[in-house]
């Protein structure tokens, strides 16, 4: 991380999205700073995942705009978001089930590598070198999330916790500036959640900004530098956990429930 970079990594300005008559997002504006762990919480159906999908290009927002890394983020297709440096995991894990764990991470290198069909068919030295680099990086990432011993297992045969880790490794393979985790602790027991907390802190420590969408309030409050709360598609508050926890509106909307 360099100190001359502007401190804002992602800025959302008045982002709106509706499905038919349902307003899933009402002019949500928020700012994620470089190097922080930013939490996004809210009750079920508050619009967290919709926000996420708008940002990563899966949905096209009906209003508002995103600025990412100093330039407008034209969220028209997910692959562009990945190329810009936004990686994500999914609430209901989406791995390439019939590919090995290693291959899953190798796919994650796609957007940062260039070998084409011709190179592959001719098996050129450049292609072979790139392929070796992809493999090595993928192995390193499996080590990083500590599932290296499952490298050759099919992704769908991994345990739930390992699948979560694999999905994070795959996302990291795209060299993201912003890593978005959609409810990574869902369905995890206390030990697994604690291990996940350590992993997320480690990733931030190594220089990747993290956006965390979570239901587990304890995890979010303990882990995040700042937290935003969504309710009925609108932003309630965006502040440090200590302030958010005491906010009356948040308690009513979410914590008090």
């Amino acid at each position: 991380m360099s100190t001359n970079l502007p401190s804002t990594l992602l800025e959302a300005k008045a982002v709106a999205k509706h499905f038919g008559g349902v307003k899933a997002l009402r002019d949500v504006s928020l700012t994620i700073r470089r190097g922080e762990i930013y939490g996004l919480i809210g009750p079920n159906g508050a619009g967290k995942t919709t926000f996420f999908n708008c940002m990563t290009g899966l949905y096209v927002p009906d209003g508002g705009a995103f600025t990412f890394d100093g330039a407008p983020l034209v969220a028209d297709a997910p692959q562009h978001a990945a190329a810009r440096g936004i990686a994500r995991t999914f609430q209901n894990i989406r791995l390439f089930g019939n590919m090995t764990a290693l291959e899953n991470v190798m796919v994650g290198r796609h957007v940062r590598t260039r070998a084409g069909v011709i190179g592959a068919m001719l098996n050129t030295s450049a292609t072979r070198a790139e392929e070796a680099a992809i493999r090595q990086r993928a192995i390193d990432l499996l080590h990083y999330v500590r599932i290296e011993d499952r490298a050759d297992d099919l992704a769908k045969n991994l345990s739930y916790g390992d699948q979560r880790r694999l999905e994070i490794a795959r996302a990291l393979a795209t060299e993201p500036k912003l890593l978005c985790l959609d409810e990574p602790a869902a369905g995890m027991n206390a030990t697994e959640t604690e291990e996940l907390r350590e992993l997320i802190e480690g990733i931030r420590h190594d220089g990747t900004t993290i956006l965390l969408i979570e239901h587990d309030v304890k995890l979010v409050m303990g882990l995040c530098d700042r937290v935003a709360v969504l309710d009925y598609g609108a932003l309630v508050i965006e502040d440090v956990p200590a302030v958010v926890q005491k906010d009356q509106r948040v308690i009513e909307a979410y914590l008090g429930a």
């Binding site: 899966l58 997910p78 990686a87 590919m99």
Partner: peptide, 21 residues
């Protein structure tokens, strides 16, 4: 190859394939 893995990724889960770029 890189392209071959991309094909298989699309076959397995198109949305996840898009998400990794």
């Amino acid at each position: 190859s890189r392209i071959g893995r991309a094909w298989q990724a699309i076959r397995e889960d198109e949305i996840a394939a898009k998400a990794v770029g």
